[in-house]
Design a protein around this nucleic acid. Structure first.
Lengths: 148, 148
DNA sequence: CCTTGTTAGTTACAAAAACAACTATTACAT
DNA sequence: ATGTAATAGTTGTTTTTGTAACTAACAAGG
């Protein structure tokens, strides 16, 4: 039996963060999976386009910190299912502009509603004040620019 | 351009949690990967045994909320590399008791040191008080949702 | 122009995860 | 006992991811 001195796996931040992250995405994951057959990478792309409008794969990758191969595959599948349309840039023919189709916007709107409700449920679970502190702290850990 | 009303992906808790979790495990992951060729599932098993002593695969799975096939393969690989030893239970021959070998304990001790340092670095980054609140909040979020 | 380097995105192949079906053993109700 | 269900853990198959190599287009120096 080893010495447990001052260390507990359940308190180790990376572990705890992973557990919480996994738990917290479970319910929402079911929605986009069952309803639209989407993967996590796919809804992330969808949400980026829905929220920010026309973007390139590279821009999404940078924002979501996802590798370009993940984006490439997500975009491919979303285009295949007519959730988004791809347009080559006229000036630089390497880059491709991505826009949601009507169907994509519809899916986004629906998923955004559910996401908002789900986020509210999580906030209710942990308390409004704690939630604000949580977001702020997570932003630091994720090294995202602070809100404001 | 869609209406962004009151929703931001960067503020969506499941998204934010995932980003922070991913970021925070990155550095530590390199250590057990480069140094011992371990996967996340494997160090989790190692840490459970190092911290709590003899356990069965089922117990670890329950504690870490990992699926039994993941555990089974992690245990297999750890046993193969002589980090742990497996012993069949005499009374119930379905269950197997897992113990770290000397080599396993050595790896655990080393990784635990690094984990503690890394945790301390994260705490320093976000502040001691925020860290305590964070852990508390994450513990709530990581709880299994009530049965329905 | 031509080499060399860079960037956007894709594709091929290997590693890992998810999911389902399986073996072996124990429990338990007829 | 004996048939049925439950439990511990494994194995096989399919998806998904990670890594690296690749194509195509641009950029910039000579």
């Amino acid at each position: 039996m080893p010495d447990n001195d001052r260390f507990d796996l359940q308190e180790f931040l990376p572990y705890l963060l992973n557990q919480a992250a996994e738990m917290s995405s479970l319910e929402f994951q079911q929605v986009y999976k069952d309803r639209y057959g989407m993967l996590r990478t796919e809804w992330r792309v969808l949400f980026h386009l829905g929220l920010y409008g026309r973007m390139t794969a590279g821009e999404i990758g940078h924002s979501a910190k996802m590798h370009k191969t993940k984006i490439s595959r997500a975009v491919h599948r979303l285009a295949e299912r007519r959730f988004l349309a791809r347009t080559r840039d006229a000036a630089d023919r390497r880059v491709e502009h991505l826009d949601l189709t009507a169907q994509g916007r519809k899916a986004y709107a629906e998923l955004r509603e559910i996401a908002m409700e789900y986020d509210a449920a999580l906030v209710a679970k942990i308390g409004r004040d704690q939630a604000e502190i949580l977001r702020q702290t997570l932003r630091v850990l994720a090294e995202l620019p602070p809100k404001d």
